[in-house]
Amino acid sequence: MSFPKHLASSTGSAVAIAALVFAAGTWVLPPWLAFLLTLAFAKGLVVLGVVIQMRAGLVSFGQALFYCIGGYIVGLASQSLGISDAFALLALATGAGILMALACGWLLTRYREIFFAMLTLALSMILYGALVKSSALGSTDGFNVAAPSFLGWTPQGDAQKQALYLLSVAVAAAVAIGIHRFMVSSLGRVIEAVRENELRVEYLGLSPRAVLFSNYVVAAGISALGGGLTALASGHIDPDMAVWTTSGEFVFIAILGGTGHVFAPFIGAIVFSVIRTFAIQEAPHFWQMTLGVVLLALILFLPKGLWSLIARDKPAEVAT
């Protein structure tokens, strides 16, 4: 799971190429697929947040906390403050996620393993409880989010959806490059060292908690961004965004895609969405079972995630 430095530039260009391929798809893809991909990219951002914490050995079962905060901030800012610009809304969402992470991080970074997982879960469920009690915010029904504008341009109909699709591709690509840089930076490498042996990192004169804290905040920021993007794309938010099964799904996708590369979460999210929508279509009564079997098979036969299909012939040492 380490990132050889000389691959940094090639990953950057690969992200750019992939983004261009997807962007070109705007005018080729059927609208339903573009919509599915928009949501999958948004979800991929949250999963990326889970993945970068997994690199530090921490599994968050409460990443939905930030996903939900992102979504609700976009919804509230657009409804109450009258902000309609997509970029401003997303910036607000990311900022709110980061603020929340700054507030919780001091406590959470004291925890490891299953205790970290459960504490993050508790936090997201407390937010869920608070939202369910808020009749003014529609309780469990949530509320709808108005279609955004883009730097003063307010597209209508199909153009609206295309603009959102392009936005999600651009945001995902920008974040992927940014996180990749972060991962191969010296801080990013220390994160892996913390997972391997925290005590020895301390011997090096570094504070593992400070490292984990910054990692936690970054993860929160991109997860909130993913939540904001979801709110803009689907046009609706509700407290289900914060519920523990949502977090579970993110972890599931993280394992499915693999933790080997910034691309993996996005591939995982797309494959998951596609499998799910066809399972629902082909087996309306038994789609959960279909999904479970397919995913179990993937875990059994591709223990390093879908990413190992692409990176298979790399030396084993690299992919640990």
Binding site: F286, Q288, M289, G292, V293, L295, L296, I299
Partner: peptide, 28 residues
Amino acid sequence: RFLMGRDEILMVIVTYALLLILEDATKL
């Protein structure tokens, strides 16, 4: 039996897949 010794989190996910399967099996 075939998965023992794997990562704890992977096992959570495996049992989550089991949950999905058993949920529909119960319905069946």
